[in-house]
């Protein structure tokens, strides 16, 4: 048994937004724990609440329209109760974030060196000029940018997409945070560059032991890098599992649908892809009961519960996995094994 070091504990997180059309229930009752040195993946289709969950962990959601409830503890500190000063302290040195579009995270008018330096100085106000400069070069080297001394004087547009994402990672990690939240960090990149960036994140993690929360819509990326996985649908966690269990014995009908819908490089999968009929629901007007029921093949097997009762997360199959579904365990395991093979 390896000792576990929780660095982030999220309990019953819910986030809703007030909009002209009504209240959007973006995140509903999400709980998870992130451990030191480990990678937790969140997978789900667009609009399932992944990014809103991530932003809540830095308290980045718009405070005027957003209503947040639940608790978030970062290294033992209550994030929800933190003052603005404490928040500034937490951001960067405890938790840092990397987004899909590196260009939006960078200022086009400053050199990349200046931007790495600035992020460092926020948490090291007394650092000397030469110390800061050394840190900049050190970080650029770490994230694999050739000729760091010279390139630190270049502007963001002088870099390729992959190199820009490396710089964003350098900025995120300059204060040695315990937690890195990466929201679709490779979605905008080509596969060969994606592979480089994922390798980089994992090797930095091996070096400094940070915990990574990796958000993606790509099950392949999850399979390559995550240790534990949350599957989200319509703002809720519908399955929580070890990555190997998720692919071997998935325990939620939505996970079954997702796994069946992925094309693969392996030609044994040719022919009709399995599909999930219909489209995800509007978060303004969620279906009653299990939000997945209008698209679910198995909703007729549960005596009408699917339409009326929200299922809660329970162990249905493997020891460390749980899913929110009204199906009986035996049935779940039977179908899960078939899908997983």
């Amino acid at each position: 048994m390896e000792a576990s070091h929780p660095v982030l504990i999220v309990e019953n997180l819910s986030v809703s937004f007030e909009t002209p059309d009504g209240i959007v229930h973006a995140v509903n009752d999400v709980s998870f724990v992130l451990h030191r040195g480990k990678t937790l993946g969140i997978v789900g289709e667009s609009g399932s609440g992944k990014s809103v969950t991530a932003s809540s962990l830095m308290r980045l959601n718009n405070s005027v329209t957003a209503t947040t409830s639940g608790s978030v503890q970062v290294s033992g500190k209550d994030l929800m109760a933190a003052s603005d000063d404490e928040l500034r302290q937490i951001r960067g040195s405890e938790i840092a974030m990397v987004f899909q579009d590196p260009m939006s995270a960078l200022n086009p008018y400053y050199t990349v060196g200046a931007q790495i330096a600035e992020a460092y100085e926020v948490h090291h106000p007394n650092a000397s000029k030469s110390e800061v400069q050394m840190k900049v070069i050190d970080m650029m080297t770490k994230v694999g940018i050739p000729n760091p001394e010279q390139r630190s004087k270049d502007y963001p547009h002088q870099f390729s997409g992959g190199m820009r994402q490396r710089i964003v990672i350098a900025i995120a990690l300059v204060n040695d945070p315990k937690i890195l939240i990466a929201d679709e960090p490779t979605t905008a990149l080509d596969v060969t560059v994606q592979a480089q960036i994922l390798d980089l994140m994992l090797s930095l993690q091996a070096e400094n032991g940070m915990a990574i929360l990796l958000i993606t819509h790509d099950l392949g990326v999850i399979a390559e890098v995550a240790r534990d996985v949350l599957v989200m649908y319509a703002g809720r966690v519908v399955e929580k599992a070890d990555v190997e269990d998720l692919f071997e014995i998935p325990t939620h009908p939505y996970s079954w649908g997702l796994l069946g819908a992925v094309s693969s490089l392996d030609d044994s999968h040719r022919g009709q892809l399995k599909t999930i009929e219909g489209a995800p629901p509007s978060l303004l007007n969620l279906p009653t009961g299990c939000a997945f029921h209008p698209r679910c093949t198995y909703s007729s097997e549960n005596n009408g519960q699917c339409e009326t009762l929200v299922p809660s997360l329970m162990q249905k199959g493997p020891e460390h996995s749980s899913s929110a579904c009204h199906l009986q365990s035996a049935r779940v395991v039977q179908i899960g094994r078939e899908v997983g093979k």
Partner: peptide, 8 residues
Amino acid sequence: AVPVANPK
């Protein structure tokens, strides 16, 4: 470089 949807 294509991620393979199989953790094994």
